[in-house]
Design a protein around this nucleic acid. Sequence first.
DNA 1: CTAAATTTTGGCCGCTCGGTCAGAATCTAG
DNA 2: CTAGATTCTGACCGAGCGGCCAAAATTTAG
Lengths: 208, 208
Amino acid sequence: MSARTAGGDKQSFIEQARRAQIVASATKVIAETRYAGASLALIAEDAGISKGVISYHFTSKSELMEEVVRRILAEVVEFVVESVKDRESATEVLRGQILAVAEHMRERPAAIMALHEIAANMRAPDGSLRSGIEASEEILRLLEGIYEMGQRTGEFRAFDCRVMAVTHNAAVNDMFAYWATHPGHDLDAHAAELADVFVRATREEPSA
Amino acid sequence: MSARTAGGDKQSFIEQARRAQIVASATKVIAETRYAGASLALIAEDAGISKGVISYHFTSKSELMEEVVRRILAEVVEFVVESVKDRESATEVLRGQILAVAEHMRERPAAIMALHEIAANMRAPDGSLRSGIEASEEILRLLEGIYEMGQRTGEFRAFDCRVMAVTHNAAVNDMFAYWATHPGHDLDAHAAELADVFVRATREEPSA
DNA sequence: CTAAATTTTGGCCGCTCGGTCAGAATCTAG
DNA sequence: CTAGATTCTGACCGAGCGGCCAAAATTTAG
């Protein structure tokens, strides 16, 4: 029963591989059938295994979903940080973040779709709060940090960094949702426009 | 079986009243238990009627949900249009729209919550698209119109009005989501900040 | 009042879901 | 090879869902 024990254990390669395989199938199935349609049966079928295997490697569906979120979130953050780390001004980091996210959306749309689905639909165990919101708190804090940096260097005007981060995050997320549901929509142009909007929003402006 | 016939009919007062009552209970239950938790049984219980009555007055759960969306959307649009109709510049309409929506969120949070839940979770009959997105197309067009007006009068700089409308809509929606999940968050300050951001985004700015 | 039409009830159906389990299969160590 | 640990299978369970319907209750029309 070693596979069922809690997270801290050292796990065999095959154990790790199975979990990764299941997470990959879950990601794919969620992206294709939405959160509500992603049953354990479908995920198992996609992975070419029996349904019981999922229950063997994950204590519950929630745990599987949390793992999916964890992996995709780490992937996105790594991609964006890598793409932005050399930029020097806050303005350039801002632009870079938006363009990097758009690029990543084009490369791994299923992962982003799955992330959105889970974030929108999953609840904490007690049912009181969306755990998806908790998950995106990390991203919110990173964005907030960018805006705070810009204010510290005097590049940006005064504003509420939290509100700016929430707005920025919403805009980027909805860019994906719009792109995903409107075939032919120009993601690059959208991202460029977004970058423009948020850079302008950070500038001081004379007329009230 | 008159109640089951399609929409065009003249319907009795009691029929209309029952439908309105069911829609009201559905709105409340969705806001309290989220879309996935809002079963016909719970809605009927809240309305103090038998489950079968819902099936009698609505051909399906989807039809009920569509009616809920229709009513809330109409309510929001009416409130905002009423609150904005006397403003003369596009900039003032923009500000007014954001502040009006925030005010409406404070007055009828359950309705807005239900709208968000359904928009995020409902699908078109063929399962291909979110009907919630279709529903919000109306709002998107209204917003697009504001930005186009500002460009026509030379008040606003050149930008993609569609992208601006999508971004604006996302920001306002997420303002609600953040407020709903973060007790103590200052909705008025958030709305004011948002208005500032989008007004600034419409302005020409010298430094590239 | 009587009869027809409308509305409501409450139990029932078939379905899908997440989760469980005994036993089979596979892998590993001695 | 053998024995024990690990992993997998596929059937099964109880719960909750949307929808259905015969019969009861209520309202309306004559």
